[in-house]
Design a protein around this nucleic acid. Structure first.
Lengths: 328, 328
DNA sequence: CGAAATCATCGACGCGCGTCGATAATGTAG
DNA sequence: CTACATTATCGACGCGCGTCGATGATTTCG
């Protein structure tokens, strides 16, 4: 393993010059820069991670902090997000790592920060008013939240523009004449953005709360028309259960889109096309969004502590018609 | 953030004494040991990760190296394994981290090693003759393979004792009078251990190769009895598809265990109990196995380069009767 | 009681790199 | 040609810790 000293010797310059070539924090003439880079290439020199961190450089490593990636039934979406982040930061010469935290215990987070081996943190699977955000804030680590946790507090985030995603889905259903809309969700309450969007369009919402698994969808399909005679349109916030629901409903004689129109807003294309019939969605480009999140993370790290400006991004997708909706 | 110097000053000892208290590599009298520990406690001192790594200490961090955790449909089993490893090493004061590698490209692995921020590597999702094993071997990093990749090459591993797992499942089916056994698998060939076990018991195997998803199970169930009239017993190496198969077969009038007896060998209990009827299995204690793997990893790291002895462990589970098999 | 062995502890050095202050080389204006 | 700003480069130091050799304290044995 060659060191900075080896590179300096081979290039005939001082060690600090090598450092400045790499960091670009001081001007270096083109000629020496070339020589140094050639030496680096020839020796296959790699920056020693630990030494750089010790000497005060921010490590070129991004940590994805996630708690429920492995406890809950794993979703394709989580996979797409992880994958996107990895590729997003890779392009900038950063590495990425997943830091599994087992529970609500803060000690895992603080461990990570104390180790100081991570240049930035991407917080995933956030909840409303997630306390971890404040832990990160206090620790003064550059971080980006994938999702949003609360208002009135400035932080970097990348999220879906749920306000418009819901509006898009509901507007489509309303245009087709549907007024009583079922909401397939894993929560016991309807999300505020969704309530607001429905109110504006004067639609009636009906919460259909199920677990996001195969069983959840099947259970919901059973006696659906008897239980929810008014519901003709559905907006679904789940993925796995939605596929099962559509399959199950169809096989027991409910026609989609004849009897029920359904729009998914939280599914990957692959999933939306795995059911029969296929499911129209408001596209959720999870992978692309995660790539962008990774890039923003890198920008935030490189901007350094000096920059107080927070970056954020909201993603809407197009409505993709796969034929699961029709005129009432 | 307090340092070793702070602790030394407070305890009234030299810095090296503090180090030796922590590492235990030189004898320290009880009285000073107590004083040092008290000072550490009082200051909330934490070993600086980067400095320790730089100075040559092996970092108290374990890296799980996995490629297809996020590309393939995620399985509950992978989750259980990750979770087990995390908890297994946590008990020994190690941290663990997932290093996602995107493809067959070795550069990701070498990056990890060059960074030298990992005390040991647990290689997951290994294939037969996995080249990564040799990369790790060459790099002289302590590593443990979760699974087995090839014979005639000494490395640390933890794996299921497939030879006996298969034997247990097949013997059970044979006792009940089944002679033509279907093998539900995702591969295009039958695993050697399984072939051998069948040969010894004079059973005929019939490969039923499907994808490990909901569709795979349903497709297989369709016209099963027409396509495979001889097959009365099944040993399934998949999890998700098996649940779907059992559900689908049952709902189209095939009686389990009346018409077909089935034994799963690669499922979590939770999964085996989610179908109707439930599925008898040879228990796969993935979580417990992973905990053990984590502990072995720590042992290997702490044994250091001096110890040439390789550790390995093979796990068999009990046959758990859930009523999915019966006398022919 | 003195010499040797053992034990507990200390001091110093180096790991590889980031960065500050200083210096040498070059350019600019008076 | 001198005085001074600018640019390019160097040398030295410190980050926090692991570890080796050395020192002083204590015990053991002849």
């Amino acid at each position: 393993m060659s060191t900075r000293a080896d590179v300096a010797k081979l290039a005939g310059v001082s060690e600090s010059t090598v450092s400045y070539v790499l960091s670009g924090k001081r001007p270096i003439s083109d000629s020496t820069k070339q020589r140094v880079l050639a030496a680096i290439d020839q020796l296959g020199y790699k920056l020693n991670y630990a030494a750089a961190a010790l000497a005060g450089g921010s490590p070129r490593m991004v940590t994805m902090m996630t708690s429920n990636l492995f406890l809950a039934p794993p979703s394709r979406i989580d996979g797409a997000l992880v994958d996107g982040i990895v590729n997003g930061v890779r392009g900038s010469g950063f590495h990425s790592v997943i830091w599994p935290i087992s529970n609500e215990d803060d000690s895992d987070i603080e461990m990570l920060l104390e180790l100081n081996f991570s240049g930035g943190v991407i917080l995933m699977n956030v909840m409303e008013n997630d306390p971890r955000v404040h832990t990160l804030e206090r620790a003064k680590v550059p971080f980006v939240v994938l999702g949003r946790t609360e208002v009135g507090f400035a932080y970097n985030y990348v999220d879906r523009d749920f306000e418009n995603v819901y509006k898009l889905a509901l507007a489509h259903l309303k245009e087709l004449g549907h007024t009583h809309i079922g909401v397939i969700s894993g929560n016991s309450e309807i999300h505020d953005f969704l309530k607001k969007a429905a109110a504006k369009l004067k639609l009636t919402l009906n919460l259909l709360s199920i677990r996001n698994n195969h069983d959840g969808g099947i259970t919901l399909a059973k006696d659906f028309t008897k239980k929810y005679p008014n519901v003709t349109g559905i907006i679904s916030l789940l993925d796995i259960a939605t596929v099962s629901f559509v399959n199950a409903a169809t096989s027991q004689g409910i026609s989609i889109p004849g009897d029920i129109s359904i729009v998914g807003v939280n599914m990957l294309e692959e999933q939306a096309e795995s059911s029969s019939p296929k499911i129209s969605t408001v596209a959720f480009n999870a992978y692309e969004m995660a790539i962008s999140c990774g890039k923003i993370m890198v920008e935030v790290i490189e901007a350094g502590k000096n920059s107080k400006k927070k970056k954020s991004e909201l993603w809407v997708g197009d409505f993709i018609d796969r034929g699961s909706t029709s005129q009432l």
